[in-house]
Design a protein around this nucleic acid. Structure first.
Lengths: 225, 225
DNA sequence: CCACCTTACTTTGTGCACAATCACGATGGA
DNA sequence: TCCATCGTGATTGTGCACAAAGTAAGGTGG
């Protein structure tokens, strides 16, 4: 036993830890869009030198969570309304494809998907949004894994694990949450039936609804005049 | 004037140069799949220290061109037949989407696309494969740029700029080359007409043909028994 | 003869220091 | 008052050195 936290194959490398920490801080909104990522500050906070911090920041840039200007440092990426539209278009395309492939690949773990549905529905009243968000991500990731071998899961992660995308669930009303859970069940049924078109349609509907929620959230909350 | 080679905004950073060099070597087949990327060796060859080399290797891993095992170093990724199928599926999905969006976005530079068609066709007899490959990549990139704002071009690059994908054109017969050029012209016409479905269909047909060529090349050339 | 352990050697991961560049403010002149 | 130029501080890019982990070879015991 090595005593890992949650990741099985954690290399316990400093760069990995810093990367995970910064990633979580960006996704949780602790580090807001446009804020700078100064290497020395992060290094001091994490108790390491700048070397692993540099590597972590470069990885964040590769993940699409930060932007690096040469000799000027890195900042957390800022998304405008058009960027979010593009992001959700790509989610529909890629996750729809993943769902369709998962339906015919025979590699979907249906028991696991159903168990995740059960656990999400159990957290409905009162809604435990952070936990539901985590389980929802796990559910989608299982579909991605079943729909692609190597490249697809990485590509989808690039568009799913974005700041405003992950905070979508938090804005769901209980009614909206029920419909989302029902779509999950439908998706499992479509995959179990081996119906690629059905699976793609359910996923598309699922994501279109999420897109509306995010769009409302962005237009209602005026960012910075 | 700064005297750059070909990239306009070259930061003249060592890490960028090493990254570009290694990338070209992998895509050109100089570094074969599975071969190791030793930091010190590369540093010596490039005339720098290990620090920029490390950064370049990590970037290659983010590009999907290398795989890093902690404490064990990096190797050039190896693709099997199933991986290539997944890759071309994703090309169809993403480039088809890009073509469809380019047809309705109004951001396609039709003159530039036509000029690239002209230049490719001028290199037909005898076929200058390296030059055609470059121009073909430029052509596709223009479509990607017109079809997406930020994320799409990066995602598509991830599946287009793979070793075996870029060497596809080299395996085209003159006949196959003519059909490919005709599809490029069709795509320009579809985009000019603003017909998203047409553009997607042309791109899908274009890539399906390429997939066949790559599939034949892989099955005919037995890699390692 | 084979399996296991020990021992060097190789390679990566991290810390640290210096140089180059950028941002910002002060100072001087028109 | 406004603009240009010149410091000064802050931050990143790179080189270098040491520590840790992995690998492979050789030796020893069964």
């Amino acid at each position: 036993m090595t005593g890992d936290d949650d990741v099985p194959n954690a290399g316990e490398q400093a760069a990995d830890r810093v990367h995970a920490t910064l990633r979580a801080e960006i996704l949780d909104g602790v580090r807001t869009a446009g804020s700078r990522l100064r290497e020395e500050e992060i290094a001091a906070a994490q108790g390491t030198s700048r070397t692993p911090v540099r590597e972590a920041i470069r990885r964040l840039a590769a993940d699409g969570l930060a932007e690096i200007a040469p000799r000027r440092g890195a900042v957390v990426v800022a998304w405008d309304a058009d960027d979010l539209d593009e992001l959700f278009d790509l989610r529909v395309v890629l996750e729809g494809h993943a769902a369709a492939r998962a339906a015919v690949s025979g590699r979907a773990d249906l028991d696991r998907l159903r168990a995740l549905c059960d656990r999400m529905e159990a957290l409905r009243t009162p809604p435990d949004y952070p936990a539901i968000t985590r389980l929802n991500l796990e559910f989608h990731r299982e579909v991605h894994r079943a729909g692609g071998r190597r490249v697809l899961p990485e590509l989808v992660a690039r568009v799913v694990e974005a700041p405003l995308v992950q905070s979508t669930i938090r804005r769901y009303t209980p009614d909206r949450l029920d419909r989302s859970f029902a779509q999950h069940r439908d998706l499992v049924a479509a995959i179990e039936a081996g119906d690629a078109d059905w699976a793609r349609a359910v996923m598309t509907a699922h994501l279109r609804a999420a897109r509306e929620v995010v769009r409302d959230a962005v237009t209602n909350a005026h960012p910075s005049p």
